[in-house]
């Protein structure tokens, strides 16, 4: 009889543990799904996007739906995995899509403006501050698959809280 009592206790404890684990796992999975498929906060700092984003670092919201559906177009702020270092993510503006001809001006490297054609499946990204930005003018057009999200909302600083214009 005592043996049966022990078993009952153990069963109850195991059920409790299982329930708690399920809740925790479920929560983490939902967290992952919202972060990967819906939207994530991201932190952008540096001088490359100057008039639009501040140097000290803005907290932005990026949504992952439109890149997945292929709805990225001219002038959108995008979150891109840097082609030179896959662990880094940079915020830049889409200037041209596949098949377009870009005329760009790189004050750091040459005086004259240059022309490039964006190949199939690529986009041309540039920072708003053309004097201090490390972008497509340096590493060329980036594959569309590197685009992680479209930045649409600014959370911090509180003065600029709201949707980001084009």
């Amino acid at each position: 009889m005592r043996f049966m009592g022990y078993i009952g206790q153990w069963r109850r404890a195991a059920k409790e543990v299982l329930d708690r684990t399920t809740i925790a796992v479920n929560f983490l999975c939902w967290f992952h799904i919202t972060g990967n498929y819906l939207c994530t906060p991201c932190h952008a700092y540096g001088v490359s996007m100057l008039p639009t984003l501040n140097v000290t670092g803005d907290v932005l919201l990026a949504e992952h739906v439109s890149p997945r559906l292929g709805k990225v177009s001219y002038g959108d702020l995008v979150l891109v995995k840097s082609p030179l270092n896959p662990k880094l993510r940079v915020t830049k503006r889409v200037i041209a899509l596949e098949g377009d001809t870009v005329t760009y001006f790189d004050p750091l490297h040459s005086e004259a403006s240059q022309v490039a054609v964006v190949p199939k499946g690529h986009v041309w990204i540039q920072g708003d501050n053309i004097y201090a930005s490390h972008d497509s003018r340096y590493y060329g057009p980036v594959p569309y698959g590197l685009i992680e999200g479209k930045v649409f909302f600014r959370v911090w600083p509180p003065d600029d809280f709201g949707l980001l214009g084009q």
Partner: peptide
Amino acid sequence: VFRSPMNHK
């Protein structure tokens, strides 16, 4: 396994 650079789908 990687996304094709020519076509992200």
